[in-house]
Design a protein around this nucleic acid. Structure first.
Lengths: 127, 127
DNA sequence: TATAGTAGTATACAAAAGGTTAGTACTAAC
DNA sequence: GTTAGTACTAACCTTTTGTATACTACTATA
């Protein structure tokens, strides 16, 4: 019967790939926890391209001051950037990426490349 | 003055990397729109590892029925998977990834690898 | 007949994420 | 002195995301 067959297949699948699956799911989970959400990667990209100051980043990615403030704190806490205060006058604050943030290179590349191709696909489908 | 210097630097930065930055930001934006959020990539991973049925996916990734239902519809609409109904008895529904979903390979690999390393880093820092 | 499993939907509600507006405190330019 | 810019914070509100519970309808098992 169909159900019996499915049952056996289910056991086989479990034996073969359950660990691989759980490992990948855990990896994705951890990644999304650290760099998920609407803003984190965008902020990191802006910083990588040389924008270092609050209002500069805000205008570049179109985020509200509130969210930028929150996200910058989180990113600093997680070791992706450092906050540098240059006592003025005028007082200037610069946000700079740490070396650890370089480990994100592959992720950023993969995601933005895929995003560009996906946009192209959508555009083709519409026309 | 500091401000004058910053002003000039700002212009230079704008000329050098503004386009690169905007292109990357747009790519990330499109990617996050299609596969962002807490569940999409996890569902795709589960499907890749051979889990194809509703309750199976639900248990594997720990999502509520409501959210799974919503996300599966979105993923089908965006061409990542197909819904196959096998008229029973018993009626069985299978969700299967399309070829297009294979384009996500690089993204999935980069993200889960980074996530694993990040977890390791956090673990080391704590001990 | 009762229990459990399949694949969901409906409803209500809570929590998280994000936006808007206003305001602080300071400096610089007109 | 007025306007504008820097770097934020606080209060309030809306939207999105998510959970929990109950329910449908059908099949299989004990």
């Amino acid at each position: 019967m169909v159900s019996r067959c499915n049952f056996i297949l289910k056991i086989m699948k479990g034996a073969i790939s359950k660990e691989v699956c759980q490992k990948r799911l855990k990896g994705i989970d951890d990644a999304l926890y650290a760099i998920g959400g609407k803003w984190r990667l965008k902020i990191i990209i802006a910083l990588r391209e040389g924008y270092t100051r609050f209002n500069e980043i805000q205008r570049t990615i179109g985020i509200s001051a509130k969210m930028l403030s929150i996200e910058l704190k989180e990113l600093e806490l997680n070791g992706f950037l450092k906050r540098e205060v240059h006592t003025g006058p005028p007082v200037v604050v610069e946000y700079k990426l740490t070396e650890y943030s370089d480990t994100l290179e592959g992720v950023l590349q993969a995601l933005s490349d895929w995003g560009e191709n996906h946009r192209e696909k959508i555009r083709r489908e519409r026309s």
